[in-house]
Design a protein around this nucleic acid. Sequence first.
DNA 1: TGCCTTCATGGAAGATTCTTCCGTTATTGA
DNA 2: TCAATAACGGAAGAATCTTCCATGAAGGCA
Lengths: 154, 154
Amino acid sequence: MKASLDRIDLKMLRLLQDNGRLTNAELAQSVAVSPATCHRRTQRLFDEGYISHVRAVVMPQKVDRGALVMVGVVLDRSTPESFAEFEKAVAKLKFILDCHLVAGDFDYFLKIRVGDMADFNRIHGDQLIALPGVRQTRTFFVMKEVVDNAPLDF
Amino acid sequence: MKASLDRIDLKMLRLLQDNGRLTNAELAQSVAVSPATCHRRTQRLFDEGYISHVRAVVMPQKVDRGALVMVGVVLDRSTPESFAEFEKAVAKLKFILDCHLVAGDFDYFLKIRVGDMADFNRIHGDQLIALPGVRQTRTFFVMKEVVDNAPLDF
DNA sequence: TGCCTTCATGGAAGATTCTTCCGTTATTGA
DNA sequence: TCAATAACGGAAGAATCTTCCATGAAGGCA
């Protein structure tokens, strides 16, 4: 958005996106500036919000969250209050990775991670269709994760 | 999967997921072990694949990738070769964040980030419908990102 | 029980890195 | 051209990393 990122900043962003554990010294060498300058620039990337946070990516299969499900949701009514209530309730469900208001045949798309299909069926019955204003849901079980959460290309 | 994670390992995973920049010393203090032990445990979490990588999360809006689109794809034929060819081609398109083979009305679901709708329309015409074996696509423009890529709850 | 093996832990210390200050250089605008 | 502003790299004290080693706990077995 802002053109206030020069070639060095962009390279730093890409390197940190690929490896958030890079030390300042390594990063400095990779972009050919001094550690002091690199430190200052990195700090700016955080301070000005170019990097929102740094996250260790936990392998879902290793912590019993190997099942991925996409769910399309249609609400009863298309009122702002109805949307707001739904979104507020969704925010409390920690197994929901994505929740996006979309244009098209659905109102919302959800991306959900659980242990297995049995888990999902229980959650679907207990918590999803119980969300406020839900008229119908359509479930798409993910059979193969071809690409999941790829790094941003910029 | 493996029950080889004790309470300390799990806490470390959660803390590192929330903040991948935690220093070893800080993490050690948070989970009440010595820096040496913490260092050894962290290394194990990486070596054994509990943490696949650490990533700086770049704000899409700041690098002109503010538009998010979900796309459902149906292929011409449901043969293994057809699927393989499609997946191979998808892997080369860097603007695709997610690509999942699903059960249901679609064959694949894509999650795509671009600069704006004009960008997407160009990409849709040039690259998406040109993917091998695509019979039809259905586009869902994201109007509001309620939750995007939430941390894994485990 | 007593002993041995195995394993995880914390202290310690040299090596590395971080973080900040400061003088210098490059860029901008009048 | 010249002054003002911003960005740069060197340097150094503080903090951290990384590894080695000795200690102590847990489990198996006679």
